Simulated assay, not measured.
Amino acid sequence: MTHTALAAPEVGYGHVEPITVYFDDLDPMGIVHNARYAVLLERAVTPYWTVRGHYFDHNGPSTPDLFHAVREFSITYHRPIRGGGEVLVHFWLDRLGETSARYGFRFLSRDGRTCFAEGRRVIVRLDQATLRPAPWSESAREVARSLLKPEEVS
């Protein structure tokens, strides 16, 4: 069996990352379990940051910006993802604050025509010693700016 990669749909902002849904992501009905969407989002976001110098390896985090916590995760499910295989995750930043960032995301079919789910995730950068909010580094801000969704013009 050959696998032909489809081109990701064009988006005007953010990034589209293909991810693989595995058998253990599925519930007994053969659809992606609702609790797995947060993990699938991580599978999409992590490579984006990794190739831009923000990663974990055997030495720990490459930058202190990787020490952050999810403050909020909300999702609306539109259609179930059935079975394993590839789906697309379109993600972007709606807001980049001094110590936090608000992601928007959508889970899409490979052709980009079907939106399975959409939502938002807010993260807060933490100081490792105090566990209090800490400012993002300039390096992280530079990467984050590449994900910012343009402001809507009224």
Rank of each mutant, 00 (worst) to 15 (best):
L66Q: 12
G84M: 09
S100P: 05
R125S: 13
T63D: 11
D111S: 11
G112W: 07
T114W: 04
G119E: 02
G85F: 07
G85C: 08
I81C: 02
F116P: 00
R110K: 15
Y77W: 11
S109E: 05
S109C: 09
V70S: 15
F67N: 14
R79W: 01
G97V: 10
R125M: 12
H90I: 04
R95N: 13
T114K: 04
R110L: 15
E98D: 12
L88K: 02
E86C: 14
R102Y: 07
G83A: 07
P80I: 05
F107V: 00
F73C: 11
S109N: 06
L93R: 05
P64F: 03
T114N: 03
H90N: 06
P64I: 08
R120A: 12
D94A: 12
I75E: 04
L93P: 03
S74E: 04
T76R: 09
R113I: 06
R102I: 11
G104L: 12
V89A: 06
A117W: 01
E98A: 12
L93T: 11
C115L: 07
H78W: 01
H68F: 15
G112M: 06
R121G: 03
C115V: 05
L66P: 09
S74L: 00
R95E: 15
V124H: 04
V87S: 02
G85A: 08
Y103A: 05
G104V: 08
H90D: 02
R102N: 09
I81P: 00
W92K: 06
V89L: 08
L108G: 00
Y103F: 14
R110E: 09
V89E: 03
R121A: 11
A117M: 01
R110S: 10
C115R: 01
I81W: 03
G83Q: 11
D111V: 08
P80D: 07
E72N: 09
Y77G: 10
F107S: 00
G112Q: 05
E72W: 00
L66N: 13
T63G: 10
F91Y: 12
C115E: 02
R82W: 06
I123L: 11
T76Y: 02
H90C: 08
S100Y: 08
S100H: 11
S74C: 00
L88Y: 07
D111A: 10
G97N: 13
G84I: 03
E98L: 06
G112V: 05
R79I: 01
S74Q: 00
V87M: 06
R71D: 11
A101T: 08
